[in-house]
Write a protein that binds this DNA or RNA. Structure first.
Lengths: 139, 139
DNA sequence: TTTTACTTGCGAATGATTCTCAACTGGGAA
DNA sequence: TTCCCAGTTGAGAATCATTCGCAAGTAAAA
């Protein structure tokens, strides 16, 4: 939140609620789910505001946008950005979403940046396949 | 193409054209662009068929689906799958899309699979930021 | 407190993608 | 080769996520 103030972004009632919901959510939320939860705290929030706030937070680098392999439709999911990036494993069998962080991922990013001169602002690694359980069953 | 025959997929006139366009395209195509090019070879192709064929090829693992950081809208882009995965770097400055393949990426995938027991079928690594040129200008 | 540029809510608009269904056609069987 | 039919297509409507336009509301600087 302080990050936003520093950037001169106005902190409105709606933004406060939305940010808190995103930061406290145990799951990856899409815009509609985020709205539903936010409405419990502030019934007057509108879906357009949700989208506008997500765009704002994304541009400020405070949240990441995910596809999660589009396991259920073409929508996007959001999560608060953490210090080190992690990748998402989406199981085509049971729909489970797992997270995986590794120093090797960080190393790969550094190498890509070094090799190409590209200044990385967002990194998104998503894998689709079968989780341990489903791989066993399908095998 | 042989891959499809083996799987018992019917090879229609439209599919033949679409596959050839995808395989020969020097750029990443979205559904509409793919349709436009395909129509030059077979004017009767329909957008619905393009989407159906893309879904088919994606499920068979013959093409990869990309977002390219949604630099220009929420559409998807497609490319023929190659033997080794590569990641895509999308420049927020000039819109350039660069590709980058590295043994380290393959190694990371193997490590993730080994650590988690996940059987990877699709891997998508997309980076957004500034290319060498734009990073210099903005700095 | 006043001011004003930035935000919001609402509903309409957009754009990508999917669906429905009748007509069509690969490619195996006869 | 011809026949047959399950799988495929075209056309347009439908769906779904996301964005826009604009009048009314509101942070927060002065």
């Amino acid at each position: 939140m302080d990050e936003l103030v520093e950037r001169g972004v106005r902190i409105t009632r709606q933004r406060r609620v939305l940010i808190s919901v995103i930061q406290n959510s145990p799951t990856h939320l899409d815009a509609t789910a985020l709205l539903a939860i936010a409405k419990q705290q502030d019934s007057g929030i509108n879906l357009a505001t949700v989208y506008r706030t997500l765009a704002l937070l994304k541009n400020c680098g405070l949240i990441d946008e995910l596809d999660l392999m589009h396991l259920e439709g073409e929508k996007h999911y959001y999560e608060a950005k953490t210090s080190s990036d992690h990748c998402h494993l989406a199981c085509f069998g049971c729909g489970a979403i797992m997270e995986y962080a590794s120093p090797l991922f960080e190393k790969l990013k550094r190498k890509i940046a070094a090799d190409s001169g590209f200044r990385i602002r967002v990194a998104r690694l998503e894998l689709g396949g079968l989780c341990k359980q489903c791989a066993k069953t399908t095998a």
